[in-house]
Design a protein around this nucleic acid. Structure first.
Lengths: 137, 137
DNA sequence: GTAACTGCAAAATATTTGCATCCTT
DNA sequence: AAGGATGCAAATATTTTGCAGTTAC
């Protein structure tokens, strides 16, 4: 039983051809992908709706996570091994380079907790840092 | 000639009623707003298209900037240099209530510094926390 | 008067939902 | 066989574009 299969099993997902191909695409790309990338390049034609549902399922199960962007296209990237359904505790800081415009996952930099005023219940925190990345400096 | 007028002048923009009202809304909110916020709450009804174009113009001129989120809703906030003297609207955390959909500026909660990997130069940090606000809890 | 701005209509895109069919277990 | 997954069609929602009328300078 390969990695992909066991990952699906672990999350209670049926092992289907489409899911295997889409996840393989992420593993082989080692980077963030858009919905359009998946729809066009995941190896065969997948219905647009199937891609929406598959990506959402992967996000829900903690297999991939979303990276915020300012251009109306959400990026998706693989999560670290220890993510599970509901708890993306690899919630890390994202860095946007103002030079090359690339968005980079700073996997080693966790979003810090902040103390909120009385009565505020946090559910999800996001932190985006803009500046100049290592390649462009 | 007030702040708003001179700011538009400085950027070569015509001084129109709509732009003044939308920018005033940002100044009075002192925080991040979505397209929908502007369309609904900027003081009068603005055409959806006008809001798109106005926000884009402000971004292009460096009057406001975009804060990416993962839910397909871009946040817009005033840029530092254009805030009133001594006011640094961008340094605090923004809270978005998932119940009432309001965006709240937590003026007392500063965005924490994070330690970035070698070679990364931060210029600007944003932090957005989503959850349930004091009113909706 | 001219160029820039706005609003309406409509086109183009993107996302969600319902349902019938097919596949996994 | 049962429940989940997929694909198609269609309903919604979002964003962009074209153009004619209006406003700022």
């Amino acid at each position: 039983m390969d990695n992909i299969t066991s990952l699906f099993k672990k999350n209670g997902l049926s092992i289907t051809d489409g899911r295997k191909k889409i996840l393989s695409y992420f593993l082989n790309s080692e980077g963030a992908l858009t919905h359009a990338d998946v729809e066009k390049n995941a190896g065969e034609h997948f219905d647009r709706v199937t891609v929406y549902r598959t990506l959402q399922t992967f996000v829900d199960k903690g297999i991939i996570h979303q990276i915020p962007t300012t251009d109306n296209s959400i990026l998706y990237a693989l999560c670290k091994d220890d993510c599970g359904a509901g708890h993306h505790h690899d919630d890390h800081v994202h860095f946007i380079c103002e030079e090359c415009e690339k968005t980079i996952c700073l996997d080693g930099v966790m979003v810090p907790q902040v103390k909120l005023p009385r009565g505020f219940k946090p559910r999800h925190s996001e932190m985006v840092v803009k500046g100049i990345c290592d390649d462009c400096k």
